[in-house]
Design a protein around this nucleic acid. Structure first.
Lengths: 189, 189
DNA sequence: CCATTAAACTAACAAACGTTAGTCTTGTAA
DNA sequence: TTACAAGACTAACGTTTGTTAGTTTAATGG
């Protein structure tokens, strides 16, 4: 018997709806209907529709940032770092795919304050990935490719992973992680 | 002096706005304002807001399908096919990045009829990519990885390419194509 | 010079939106 | 039993939305 407060429930169900139709296409009345209450009742728990989006997106973005910062501490090889990077991306995605869909698709609908904060976080995050790849190249672990191409390719794949898992993939998460790591690092040829 | 008819102009400017803010967050009044006319005037050229989205998305989706079908004709190695596949993806993206953003983000806002048509096209398209990879594995050109992981990784990267090009990349398109092909096919280690 | 037409305009519509104010209900602590 | 608080409700608000009807304007062809 899990005791979940109403606020979390609202955010959770909103994430699901936002993922399917996008923030702008989901009304407060839609969210309310999913919870079998009236739209006005939502305001006993949250201040605005915007707040739902902020909580949703900032939370998950901060989770990625925390995971990335943990990576910075250790002094391992760049390849080891990249493997851990792939690993926590998949872990977080499996834990909350709806939130990641919102992050990807609806961050531009954040109010100015939160949008600025998010974009800053995202830029720093990408810069950290860039640093790892650069380190790998300097150390001779990674081929001398254009860094942006490598970073872009990895992040694109990891960020849209939520779209694919469960659709066609019959692998469990461990198998999947190994397979994706292989493909991303060692190529397919 | 290019003579562009008003309808194309509307679609073009809409694509740009949809890309920035998403279909649902752009009003007919917004589109009109970008063209320095009133919203009602748009209806001299198009039937509805939905029609703008349909024309935009279906056109670009069909372009991808045509390019893919051209690939099927020849009987070359799987690797050669994949290289051409990467090539035309980048070419089309460079030609019309706004339309591709709409395709990626707003296809779910198509009316039922067009959405069904699009999803069918997309599924067939992905199935064709799968076939190429499968052929490559059968022929021993491609390593024995999970096919879905390979297809997903390539398509994710190519589909979100529009987000990256021009942001950090100083490569011209030929250099970029070569670099991305290398990364996707041969890996980075 | 007149008739036609393309493409802009004004004004208005009904519906849907986020949100607020105020009320009723129900379970719990004193 | 009473007092309180949480959380649902109804009713309504001012905007914004896509779209329509009808009108004006300016360029074109006979």
């Amino acid at each position: 018997m899990e005791k979940v407060d109403r606020k979390s429930e609202i955010i959770h169900i909103s994430a699901k709806l936002f993922r399917e139709r996008g923030y702008m296409a989901v009304s407060m009345r839609d969210i309310a209907k999913s919870l079998d209450i009236k739209a006005a009742s939502l305001y006993n728990h949250i201040h605005s529709k915007q707040e739902i989006l902020s909580l949703l997106i900032i939370n998950i973005a901060e989770e990625f940032t925390r995971a990335m910062n943990n990576l910075q501490d250790s002094n391992e090889t760049a390849i080891e770092s990249l493997k851990k990077f792939i690993d926590f991306h998949i872990e977080i995605t499996l834990r909350d795919p709806d939130a990641i869909a919102c992050l990807n698709n609806d961050w531009m609908h954040l109010d100015k304050e939160h949008r600025t904060y998010y974009v800053k976080m995202r830029d720093e995050y990408e810069e950290n990935v860039r640093k790892i790849v650069k380190r790998g190249i300097d150390m001779g672990e990674i081929k001398e490719h254009n860094i942006e191409v490598i970073v872009f390719s990895m992040l694109s794949t990891l960020r849209t992973f939520y779209l694919w898992y469960g659709r066609k993939m019959k692998l469990n998460s461990t198998e999947f992680k190994e397979s994706l790591t292989q493909v991303l690092l060692n190529g397919i040829v």
